[in-house]
């Protein structure tokens, strides 16, 4: 980045960088360093803190509920991400093959849920799941099935929270896939046509391999985003029933609200940071490298 003999503009550069540097330092770096320190202390709002070394980390890692929340987060991500990707992939192929007028209407329509807040989505879905007057049980009723307590049943609560997550994320994923599809040269398909390849073969040997980067990107970002999801469970179920919808971030958030000692929850959030931060750092490196552009 440094070139000798190139005019340097130190003063102007620092002046224009000042706002971003100051804001990031105050609102990201200091809180982060602070959090790292607090995680080694027996810290609370109301008393002097004492240094406890790795005890907080030990407590978190041995807390059965934390382990359970990580497992819940994994299950949640596994419910949301693969189904969302498969649906988006199929749907992006579909949009590509319909007329452009209908196509732009459909693109707008599926993108709209993306801009809806987690709160509004939660409110809507809580109504849909309502036991007596909700849509979900009405549909079950049409098939002659008994109504279900969707959000109150340990077995169905997590999938019921996963549904709005898919609803919220499906549009953007489809549109990114579609952008990837448009980048595949049409000539590849024409060549395949000449060889007499069917639709399935073209998808398997051309589309999927050439979309590999896009799919990988969506897979990893989707996974980190979904495992960090907590707003939906917070509003829809509060983490219940029996912690069945307590994702790792909700576990941490609930501890912030209810515990006097916060060292534990901060240690937990830093442990997650190591894992999620590492994942996003890897994606960033891959995407920022020249190789990714060539596929």
């Amino acid at each position: 980045m440094f070139k000798k003999n190139y005019r340097q503009d130190n003063a102007m550069a620092y002046t224009m960088l000042l706002p971003i540097l100051a804001l990031l330092t105050i609102f990201v770096i200091i809180p982060f360093v602070y959090a790292a320190c607090v995680s080694f202390y027996n810290w609370s709002f109301y008393q002097d803190s004492t240094f406890v070394g790795f005890r907080n980390y030990y407590l978190v890692l041995t807390d059965r509920l934390f382990g359970k929340s990580v497992w819940t987060g994994l299950k949640f991500a596994l419910m949301v991400v693969p189904s969302m990707l498969i649906l988006s992939f199929l749907f992006a192929n579909l949009i590509k093959n319909i007329g452009s007028k209908m196509g732009s209407f459909v693109k707008t329509a599926i993108y709209i849920p993306t801009i809806i807040s987690g709160i509004v989505a939660s409110v809507i879905f809580v109504f849909i799941y309502d036991y007596t007057g909700g849509l979900a049980n009405y549909v079950l009723g049409l098939f002659g099935t008994e109504p279900k307590a969707w959000l109150a049943d340990v077995g169905s609560a997590l999938p019921s929270v996963a549904a709005p997550a898919i609803w919220l994320g499906f549009g953007l994923t489809s549109l990114i896939m579609l952008a990837g599809l448009y980048d595949i040269p049409e000539s590849y398909y024409e060549a395949a046509d000449l060889e007499g390849a069917g639709a399935f073969k073209k998808m398997w040997y051309i589309t999927i391999p050439l979309l590999r980067n896009v799919i990988l990107y969506l897979l990893v970002t989707g996974f980190t985003a979904q495992i960090s999801q907590y707003e939906l469970s917070l509003v829809m179920t509060g983490g219940g029933p029996l912690d069945a919808t307590t994702t790792p971030n909700l576990y941490i958030f609930n501890h912030f609200r209810n515990d006097v000692m916060v060292g534990n929850s901060i240690a937990a959030s830093l442990l997650l940071f190591v894992v999620l931060g590492a994942i996003s750092a890897i994606i960033f490196r891959v995407l920022n490298s020249e190789k990714a552009v060539d596929g």
Partner: peptide
């Protein structure tokens, strides 16, 4: 960019 919001929420 790699600092998750939750880890700095309280601090």
């Amino acid at each position: 960019m790699f600092v998750p919001a939750m880890s700095i929420l309280l601090t």
